[in-house]
Write a protein that binds this DNA or RNA. Structure first.
Length: 406
DNA sequence: TGATACGTGGAA
DNA sequence: TTCCACGTATCA
């Protein structure tokens, strides 16, 4: 991982590209406004936006085409291939994006840890989340998640708005196959989200999109549909909400902020990788078949970083909690014995692909252990050590602990 | 029922 | 302290 400077950095490229092309219209927080400040005030703006998006898409398409073919050795990442296939299958959600998503699944994003260079190395990992870097605002602005979903953003012009709603509504269904959120969900969101391009809704974010798959840091605020500084939510959010696993998605984007009814210009800070974590969790799980998708956050309610715990309960959360309690209620007496689950927000949890080279991967059959690089930070700690205080996921930089909403 | 992964105890 | 193997919980 250290030495990965030479890799192509999608984020950078995209971000720069976006900044150049779309900056005018949306990077400033004010542009996202709530009151429909203008974003969609006129038809012209929209047309302009569309144009920008087209450009953006073209660029990304080219990028993937080139990088995937050149640098990726899919054979080394069977799971990636699998993922790609799933993504393709999930295409219905974002038809235009499906293809790209598939590519993404196998794409080696540069810039992040192992991903950097060419993915040929067996140890290459696949991150589940967007880059944490501040520069990476989020990608997918899903309107409905927007705190004050303004008409402006919500314009029908966005092809995805519909699908987004559907997915969110699907709730526990977990986005079709994603039900468990892990498998389907993860792929779905994780990747989908990552490609803002396809969604077209991603305007504004310079990079956002590109990174969807990396988790470098979580800071991206991406998780769980939390919005980025610019007030946009990520596609991931959708996934989250779908799975219902993510508190962030549902809570924050939908009811939480919406309920608050914050006036335009008001800055709301969210702690930790809350939303992100959750959503991430789901995505992270996807790769493994996602058995435990959702509950991660809930389980950690006591000690975990799951940000959502601090947020007002959402229907999704509540449901999750309920299910959780129900499942564990019987074990109330044996609570201590219950297996802990992945937090879903830490770096390892966000990884979607097994390294294939660690002892755990090599001895999967006999070792029964998850890839060492995917081993949840929380689980590495002694049980009960945390305390119930909300704390940021270990891997999340303090500076990235907050997410801003406008 | 199979796959995945957490918990634990022993060995290095 | 880390690694490894096994038992077993959990989920599809």
């Amino acid at each position: 991982m250290s030495g990965m400077t030479s890799g192509v950095c999608v984020d950078s490229d995209l971000s720069s590209m976006l900044q150049r092309s779309s900056a005018p219209s949306h990077h400033h927080p004010n542009h996202h406004g709530y009151g429909g400040q203008g974003q969609v005030s006129g038809l012209a703006p929209m047309l302009d936006y569309t144009t920008e998006m087209d450009r953006y898409r073209s660029s990304i398409a080219s990028f993937y085409k080139t990088n995937v073919n050149m640098n990726m050795n899919v054979t080394n990442f069977p799971q990636s291939a699998k993922l790609a296939a799933r993504l393709a299958a999930a295409a219905p959600i974002f038809p235009p994006t499906a293809a790209r998503l598939g590519a993404m699944a196998t794409t080696p994003w540069g810039c992040h840890d192992n991903m950097n260079m060419n993915m040929n190395h067996p140890a290459a990992m696949f991150w589940g989340r967007p880059k944490p870097v501040a520069a990476t605002p989020t990608h997918h602005p899903h309107h409905h998640h927007h705190p004050s979903a303004t008409p402006g953003h919500m314009t029908s012009s966005h092809p995805h708005s519909t699908s987004m709603h559907q997915s969110s509504s699907s709730g526990s269904g977990g986005g079709g196959g994603g039900g468990s959120s892990d498998g389907g969900g993860a792929e779905k969101h994780g990747h989908t989200a990552s490609l803002p391009v396809s969604q077209g809704t991603a305007h504004h974010h310079a990079m956002a999109s590109s990174n969807g798959n990396f988790l470098p840091g979580y800071s991206g605020g991406t998780d769980c549909g939390v919005m980025n500084k610019q007030g946009h939510t990520h596609a991931d959010m959708i996934g989250l909400s779908e799975g219902g696993s993510c508190n962030g998605g549902g809570v924050m984007g939908g009811s939480f902020l919406g309920g608050l009814g914050l006036p335009p210009g008001v800055i709301v800070m969210a702690m930790g990788s809350a939303g992100g974590g959750i959503s991430d969790a789901s995505s992270a799980f996807q790769m493994t078949g996602g058995q435990r998708a959702l509950t991660d956050c809930q389980q950690h309610a006591n000690s975990s970083p799951c940000p959502s715990s601090s947020s007002p309960p959402s229907s999704g959360v509540t449901a999750a909690a309920v299910s959780l309690s129900s499942s564990s209620s019987s074990s109330s007496g044996t609570v201590a014995k219950r297996k802990r689950k992945r937090c879903g927000v830490c770096g390892p949890c966000r990884r979607l692909i097994n390294c294939g080279v660690c002892s755990s991967c090599r001895n999967r059959k006999t070792g029964h252990q998850i890839c060492k690089f995917r081993k949840c930070e929380e689980l590495k700690k002694k049980p009960g050590g945390g305390g119930g205080v909300l704390e940021r996921p270990p891997s999340v930089p303090a500076s990235e602990a907050f997410r801003w909403f406008f």
